[in-house]
Nucleic acid binder design. Structure first.
Lengths: 184, 184
DNA sequence: CGCACCATGTAATGCGTTACATGATTTT
DNA sequence: AAAATCATGTAACGCATTACATGGTGCG
């Protein structure tokens, strides 16, 4: 459902292939919206069947042919309707680490501590990624599409979401470690 | 997959019905792990087929009969194995609001601002819930099972996760509002 | 009188992942 | 010589939601 709109959103900027959409998503929305390659291809097909996108094959030399997708007028208005309708929920979360920690009293302290340490490293790397790579990617996108200044500011804001989320996550893990160490 | 372990975790404390598990989850893990009633019933059935739980019907007067589930030895060891194996990923997120805001440059500022305001209210309520109701629920659980002091400390820590998450979310929405207002 | 709570399940459908299937070019 | 990149798709499976189906008790 929602993936359709994410894809339409990208097609709104310019025609794209499924492969390119996957790359774009991995570099921009992946920390709040992700999809597998296969799902992108099937969703594009569905979009075309619904008349929200059209496609044409582009032949290439020394590269596999590619299928370029274009947003239709119906696609545009359907996307805008979705965009403008307010979202009235909290998006549900599934946090495996937190679930494990809920039951952590049933492990040895050292087992829990080592799991937390592993996660701390993972999330520090993730934070570093948002602070460096993501910033660069947005700069590149800005340079590529200088007319989308306002859009780029929103992309930056969603990058900030990832950064803030990871900062908080790391603080929580650190609190957890302190809590468990106190207990020993 | 993971829901199985969440349920086994609860059954580890005491035998329960599907109905009671649903209630427990709604009062404790729902902000990092949730499930629908129907999914809980089907998962319990699957757990029994795998030999990780058993069940018996308990007859009641003036109340519908209920099916009590018990964790088996296999269930216990399978749960502990899951608990002790380290988690090496970041749990994937799907944040509809953030996805919308990624494309927010394509809406009127006022539309975006009103959507953000709505979400601000929702998340403030959620934060309030974690700070009040959740604290009370943990106190009640502590009173009910005084032997589980260490467990209760972990429950409190996972509640903190929800609180911290909402604090951050709210800060982000406020930043977003400021960002969009600056642009007007 | 109506709503919430207690209590259990099945069936249909939809969303998402993994695995399968192919193959040339470019970089390390 | 191996791995990554470019490029597209289908099929099987599994996880999750919604809808369907039922019905008594207690409270305001």
């Amino acid at each position: 459902m929602m993936l359709k709109f994410a894809i339409l959103g990208f097609l709104g900027y310019s025609p794209m292939t499924g492969y390119a959409i996957k790359q774009r998503m991995d570099r921009s929305t992946t920390h709040f919206w992700h999809a597998r390659q296969s799902q992108i291809y099937t969703t594009l097909k569905a979009l075309e069947e619904e008349g929200l996108a059209t496609s044409m094959i582009q032949e290439q030399v020394e590269r596999p042919d590619k299928r370029l997708y274009f947003i239709t007028d119906n696609g545009r208005s359907s996307f805008l309707a979705w965009l403008q309708e307010p979202y009235l929920e909290c998006s549900p979360k599934k946090e495996t680490l937190v679930l494990k920690m809920f039951f952590a009293a049933q492990m040895e302290s050292d087992t829990a501590l080592s799991q937390l340490q592993i996660q701390l490293n993972i999330h520090r790397k993730q934070l570093d990624h948002y602070r460096n790579d993501s910033v660069k990617e947005i700069k590149q996108a800005k340079a590529e599409f200088p007319s989308l200044v306002r859009d780029a500011r929103m992309w930056e804001a969603t990058r900030r979401f990832g950064e803030m989320y990871e900062e908080t996550y790391i603080r929580w893990i650190e609190e957890m470690i302190a809590e468990i160490q106190m207990d020993q």
